[in-house]
Simulated scan of single mutants.
Amino acid sequence: MLNTLAIDPDYVEANLNTAAIIMNMANQALMDLNGDKSVSDADYNTRVETIKADMGKAVPYLEKALSKDPNNTNTLSNLKSYYIFIQDEDKANEIQAKLEAAR
């Protein structure tokens, strides 16, 4: 995907696929963390913050895709999921409104 983006940074599908890879890796890290019962609360919170930062790396790809295809419900859904995860209710609601308008 990244090679494709080097050639055409506006290619919507490559941006979406890159974002999906990043988000899937972060989701897997979160599932692994949640399954590890030996993690202290402090370590858990630190690792969740790292996962949030890692997942945030998908946002520029989602925003790029959205700028080229503003009614793409997959892009909007992924952005909404990210904002819910980082507990940014205002942004999640903003994306939800765009999602409803796109349907």
Rank of each mutant, 00 (worst) to 15 (best):
D10A: 15
L62D: 08
T73S: 13
I95T: 11
P9L: 06
T73N: 08
N45R: 15
Y83V: 03
I51M: 12
F85G: 06
V39Y: 01
R103V: 10
I7G: 06
V12A: 10
N45H: 15
Y44C: 06
V48F: 01
D41S: 08
N78G: 02
I22P: 01
Y83I: 06
T50R: 03
L62G: 03
M31W: 01
N3T: 08
D54N: 09
A101R: 00
N78Q: 10
K64G: 09
T46P: 03
I86G: 09
K98D: 05
L62S: 08
P60H: 06
A29M: 15
L2R: 08
K91G: 10
Y82K: 10
N71L: 08
A58W: 01
A20Y: 05
D88R: 15
N24C: 02
S81V: 12
N78E: 00
I7M: 11
N27G: 02
Y11M: 05
R103M: 14
L16K: 12
K37L: 06
S38H: 00
N74D: 13
P60D: 04
Y83W: 13
F85I: 05
D36E: 13
A97G: 01
D43M: 10
P60C: 10
A6D: 06
K37M: 11
K98L: 13
D8H: 02
N71T: 11
K37C: 04
E89I: 13
A29R: 12
N74I: 13
N93S: 12
V48E: 02
A29E: 15
A42N: 07
T75Y: 04
K98W: 06
P70G: 08
D54R: 14
K64L: 05
N15T: 13
T75R: 00
I51P: 01
A58K: 10
D32G: 06
G56C: 14
A26R: 05
I95L: 10
A6W: 13
M1F: 15
N45P: 05
E13K: 11
N45M: 15
Y82Q: 09
A58R: 09
Y61N: 03
T75K: 00
I7P: 01
A58C: 11
L33T: 00
